[in-house]
């Protein structure tokens, strides 16, 4: 275990990774909203009104 090598990110790399993470998060959130609203737009609000 003594020769364990870890990658230490530089400040610039950490900032870039955070920037990319936020962008991916926003893109995924946008996709969820798009598919949710598109489902209602295509099928109409009746899709939410199912007999239990």
């Amino acid at each position: 275990m003594d020769d364990l090598e870890l990658v230490t990110l530089t400040e610039r790399q950490r900032k870039a990774r955070r920037n990319r993470s936020i962008a991916i998060g926003l893109a995924l959130a946008a996709l969820v909203i798009i598919f949710y609203v598109a489902t209602i737009a295509k099928f109409g609000p009746a899709i939410l009104n199912r007999p239990m």
């Binding site: 020769d3 364990l4 090598e5 990658v7 870039a16 990774r17 920037n19 990319r20 962008a23």
Partner: peptide, 20 residues
């Protein structure tokens, strides 16, 4: 147990969302 970086081309990305 063991993490070794042997690939000479390995590098941590500095690309931002703006680059993509």
């Amino acid at each position: 147990d063991h993490t070794r970086i042997e690939d000479a081309d390995f590098r941590m990305s500095e690309a931002t969302a703006g680059d993509f």
